[in-house]
Design a protein around this nucleic acid. Structure first.
Ligand code: NAD
Ligand code: NAD
Lengths: 230, 230
DNA sequence: ACGTGCTTGTGAAAGCACGCACAAAGTGGG
DNA sequence: CCCACTTTGTGCGTGCTTTCACAAGCACGT
């Protein structure tokens, strides 16, 4: 089935690995900025805050890019991870809901370090539409379909209040956007084949509160093992 | 050790479950706002975007709060989950770094629906210190220790640039804060017993890009199973 | 009092994820 | 050319997570 000797990478990278690749990438870029040319799994794992065996196994899913006895060449590994993550191409992002959060996102410079370009901002409020935010003209939400088409938007960011989020998501999907990042605190319903990720501040706080309470409760010797030490 | 017959809940809720409890809680509150008094695992699972067996197992870790043949009483379940998450007490939050993001966070009203109170805002920039944001006076970062003590801060939020994040984290820890939410794109190093969670926009985008590329790559029949359908 | 119908709570199975520990593979020195 | 040393890539055991499937339990009508 698969050719044995020249197998650079197999299909199907574990989801847990995918979620860590961006972390490795950032650690590598920091190393590169410092002029480091080569790094061992131990060194990179330290910088990324993970176990070195886990890091090696993660990287092994992309291929065999290390040199035994030496380590990994920083620049080459950056390239390989970038390619795997799809960062060698450009992604057009549209943000809907230019309120407190939307504005912060729009003004956020170091967006994805590379690859992601904010192509459009949309809102429903006549007060906001027409204003310029982060050198972009805020368009009306009614032109979403047109904007997605003309700007080739492939990733939609939702920063509207919860009540509007599902509607916006549906319109994104309708317009052909299959990657959505949702900041609104609601569960989005989308058809199969559409990828939704959510960022939820209040969930994170609640998880922190749970652990904090546990520590206070049982007190004394304290905490179960689940504490992040990142 | 534990009394056997009246065992309402056992110690040790799985981490995966803890991460979902806030989602259930929100779904329940939405139901309550609509006047629903009772909900089945199927119904709640639908609203929360998870499998109903998973939901039942999750809830079973808190105790046996459902009624067979009927379902769960919404109000009671809200109370039980809130209690388990530690939301029946108040948590004081301090935000460090009142820039684009910090301001958005400070102005964010529906913070944690309940339980979380923004007690202090801190920044290093003389331009920002002294200003009023969200009816709070922005304090200088040098007073962090004093503020933590006087306001009883138990959760620290870091919204500074990456370069300052580790320093701020260390000072939080030094001041006795053991729960940290980090928005800066760096790996924080903290001692055992300190709980760090991170929210990282650019990682989320990169994960979306990976899946989007996969869909475009293999094309045709498309996508592996890992797509979120939330 | 009892049967019917619905829903919970949970055993058991399957699938993932993690981390140890080590063989394999490369480097560099002699 | 070979040996000592370093570091990768991975087989394997372990524990956590998810899902299925069903017995047990409860409400309600008769
Ligand atoms: N501000 C934060 O720090 C923060 C933190 C966590 C989560 N959130 C969530 O992010 C979302 C946005 O928060 P915010 O503080 O920026 O709110 P906001 O009210 O400041 O901004 C919301 C914006 O969305 C626009 N909008 C409303 N309906 C729309 C529609 N149908 N189409 C297009 N635009 C529409 C509004 O005009 C407004 O400009 C909310 O769901 C909030 O719960 C915000
Ligand atoms: N803006 C966004 O949408 C966004 C999105 C994702 C991640 N982030 C991350 O969040 C962080 C903040 O982003 P931002 O856009 O608000 O940046 P920003 O530059 O607008 O604000 C940073 C603030 O931190 C303050 N600061 C710097 N060093 C400090 C220190 N040692 N102590 C206290 N305060 C200090 C600065 O004075 C400034 O007010 C960054 O790490 C950024 O990468 C931002």
């Amino acid at each position: 089935m698969t050719s044995r000797p020249p197998r650079p990478r197999e299909r199907g990278i574990p989801e847990a690995t995918v979620a860590r690749l961006p972390v490795y990438l950032r650690a590598l870029q920091t190393l590169q900025d410092r002029g480091t040319a080569t790094v061992s799994s131990e060194g990179l794992a330290g910088a990324a805050g993970v176990n070195s065996a886990k890091l090696r196994k993660d990287l092994s899913h992309l291929g065999s890019y290390g040199t035994r006895g030496v380590g990994y060449e920083v620049e080459y590994l950056i390239y390989q991870i970038s390619r795997e993550l799809g960062l060698t191409q450009d992604w057009s992002v549209a943000i809907v809901g230019i309120g407190n959060l939307g504005r912060a996102l729009a003004n956020y410079g170091g967006f994805g370090t590379r690859g992601f370009r904010i192509a459009a901002l949309l809102d429903a409020d006549p007060e906001v539409v027409g204003r310029t935010v982060a050198s972009l003209n805020v368009r009306h939400i009614d032109s979403l379909e047109e904007v997605v088409r003309s700007k080739g938007v492939s990733i939609g960011v939702i920063a509207t209040p919860g009540g509007s989020a599902q509607g916006v998501a549906s319109r994104f999907v309708e317009a052909g956007v299959t990657s959505i990042l949702n900041f609104a605190p609601v569960v989005l319903n989308v058809p199969d084949g559409v990828d939704v990720r959510k960022v939820d501040l209040s969930i994170e706080l609640q998880i922190l509160a749970f652990h904090a309470q546990r520590r206070a409760d049982g007190d004394g010797h304290a905490h179960r093992s689940g504490l992040e030490v990142t």
